[in-house]
């Protein structure tokens, strides 16, 4: 299984552990991810898009054209990149005038894009290309004691015309993965409720309030951790958790793990390799519960 890999800006900076753990489990599962050489910003959901949609779509299209040259679909780890690149792909298909504008821009760079590839999230690959069976075959440490709250958030499963590998209102892909690892999924309401990450830099207080509600519902459902598949959600829920606690005077202390880290733990990979020491809310208590 070979794919063009679009890491996105966060995986190269604040979310290194996501990239590390993804690489580690990919090795076990025989997934070959080849980073698109010279990739650029995905085009942004809104920051550049609102300024100038064609500019944002052209930035996306440059990545897509580089991937198309590699002859495979593009895989992303970030829900926001997933959405942005897919949106560009879709709009170019639907709107020949737009496609023409973008073609001109790419032409000046001696690039072209035929629109023949798809943009997919790594979670989709795990579930539908690798399959649950192969994943369960590699489980060395069943996560029997672990109660997890799978968190899907926004653009991983929405809108359905773009993110179409799961169900937008009641997604189950991460739940299914957690089950084959032996973990128990807690029942909680806010699985797909937006965490507010896109507001964290500019409207911090609003974003923290959105994050707080979410953290508390997961905590009240007696989860040992939240599991996420997006570096934006992770930053908000993990790195900003201390700020949530101090702003609203609540005690949360709920580890937030990347789906790839949880899979890696069940595969018996080592803590360093999975970057578990890089999570802000320490998952060590949780690991000792699993006797790791």
């Amino acid at each position: 299984m070979k794919y063009a890999f679009f890491p996105g800006c966060a995986v190269h900076a604040s979310a290194k552990e996501y990239g590390m753990s993804c690489k580690a489990i990919s090795k076990v599962l025989g997934i070959e991810l080849i980073e698109i050489p010279e990739w650029n910003c995905c085009g942004s959901i809104d920051a550049i898009y609102a300024h100038n949609p064609v500019l944002s779509i052209s930035l996306s299209a440059r990545n897509l054209s580089l991937a198309e040259k590699m002859g495979t679909d593009v895989i992303t780890l970030c829900s926001a990149c997933f959405f942005t690149l897919s949106r560009a792909n879709k709009l170019m298909h639907e709107d020949p005038k737009l496609k023409g504008q973008v073609d001109n821009v790419l032409g000046n760079l001696k690039l072209n894009y035929n629109g023949e590839i798809k943009v997919r999230h790594f979670l989709d690959v795990l579930l539908n290309d690798v399959g649950l069976e192969k994943i369960s075959e590699n489980v060395k440490v069943p996560l029997k004691e672990l109660r997890v709250a799978p968190y899907y958030g926004c653009l991983l499963v929405r809108p359905p015309e773009i993110a179409n590998f799961d169900e937008p209102e009641h997604p189950t892909s991460m739940d299914k993965l957690m089950e084959v690892l032996g973990a128990t999924n807690v029942n909680y309401l806010d699985k797909t409720r937006c965490c507010g990450a896109s507001l964290i830099v500019t409207k911090e207080r609003i974003a923290l309030e959105m994050t707080k509600n979410l953290l508390l519902t997961a905590k009240n459902a007696e989860a040992d951790c939240i599991v996420t598949a997006c570096p934006m959600c992770h930053f908000n829920l993990d790195a900003m958790q201390k700020d949530v606690e101090s702003t609203f005077d609540v005690d949360i202390n709920l580890p937030v793990l990347y789906i790839t880290q949880v899979i890696g733990i069940a595969f018996g990979l080592n803590v360093k390799e999975l970057g578990l020491n890089r999570n802000c809310v320490s998952p060590m208590k949780l690991l000792s519960k699993l006797k790791i």
Binding site: G153, C154, P159, P160, E169, R193, G196, S198, T202, K203
Partner: peptide, 12 residues
């Protein structure tokens, strides 16, 4: 217009 987080709950 500035607070909308583009989360797509509404549009879905």
């Amino acid at each position: 217009i500035w607070i909308c987080a583009s989360c797509y709950t509404c549009a879905t």
